[in-house]
Design a protein around this nucleic acid. Sequence first.
DNA 1: GTCTATATCGGGATAGAC
DNA 2: GTCTATCCCGATATAGAC
Lengths: 211, 211
Amino acid sequence: MDTTVQSTEDRIHEAARKVFHQKGFNGARMQEIADLAGINKALLHYYFRNKESLFEKVFNETFSQIVSNMTKIFLSEMALMSKIEIFVNFYINFISQHSYVVPFIINALYEKPEQLREIITRQNVSPELLLEQIRKQLKEEMGLDIDPLHIYVNILGLTIFPVVAKPLIQSIFAISDERMVVFFEQRKTIVPTFISNALKGYEKNKSLAKI
Amino acid sequence: MDTTVQSTEDRIHEAARKVFHQKGFNGARMQEIADLAGINKALLHYYFRNKESLFEKVFNETFSQIVSNMTKIFLSEMALMSKIEIFVNFYINFISQHSYVVPFIINALYEKPEQLREIITRQNVSPELLLEQIRKQLKEEMGLDIDPLHIYVNILGLTIFPVVAKPLIQSIFAISDERMVVFFEQRKTIVPTFISNALKGYEKNKSLAKI
DNA sequence: GTCTATATCGGGATAGAC
DNA sequence: GTCTATCCCGATATAGAC
């Protein structure tokens, strides 16, 4: 018995993930998913009633993966700047390898906001812990009373935006694929340095730090 | 003669912009565009051969608007930090009012990279000037030899990402619409300060500034 | 569980009258 | 230029045999 052979359901699931990630709900074709899974369309509907339910499954899984990746490093026990370094490194690698994931989530949230909103709330994410942890570390390690949400969003923006907007940046600045690889490698050190500099700036100018 | 009444072509054009921006190419329906323009589908095809050509028109216009907004402030004659302040202020307002525009462009570039790539190159954007200008100002006003592309991308990421990812952030952190408005108002001052701090950090640590 | 065949419908595009 | 009617394909979904 060959355990490397996945069950049909798993193959469908994997194929659906790939196609939905790349094409989005509207762009995805059930035929393409079936082909990729090595089955026919009828069998898709045998396992999943319809396209919607298959999509929801993929969205749920992907969303929780994203959130988990975005939060778990910051919930660990390390110095804040170490967390930032690790996060930036990890995330640039992760999104480079799965460049479709974040646009997929963002796009999905624009395509069907109301349906997905409730799906998300059902996932009981607990971001309060995360923000509280960051607030505590900003205070204790750097003496800063800054809104942790802004700092966290800054970290995300500096890390995620360039990867997501890669096609846009590449088009505007006419950058080759090879130079883009170098560019993202550089960012693994540039971004943490940039953030570190910014936070140190607040330290010696604490009258402005209170936001 | 009422000059406030647009020509049919203009009404189609405006309707197409709205629908494509919100739904993307695959999500958009010719019927919806026709309804919004107050005409029927046949007339759409009379003015524009097919969906593709109508989309291209919208994409072209939107893309050049985005690029123009992204670059013109930095090509003017002001201190770099003033430019950054103005840019962040302007862009947070602009994207908040047109929240679909950036996702539209990014999504479009993922949906049909090869077709759009050539359309973009035809627009002869000149980003070299922009980067050269930023490099010059970093050097002359702050004594920094930093890659201007990274700094520029940082500015974009800090400004644009939170607006684009607004639905995501709002879902994860369970933030009300009202608090989001406040959040973006705060960012108009927080982001320039953050950037200013970061750049000042390079100044007094120039051994690390060379990237 | 898996297949082939088919129903059904939505949506882009065209024909042709006015 | 603008309309109604219609074509036609592609895509989701289902029926039913094996």
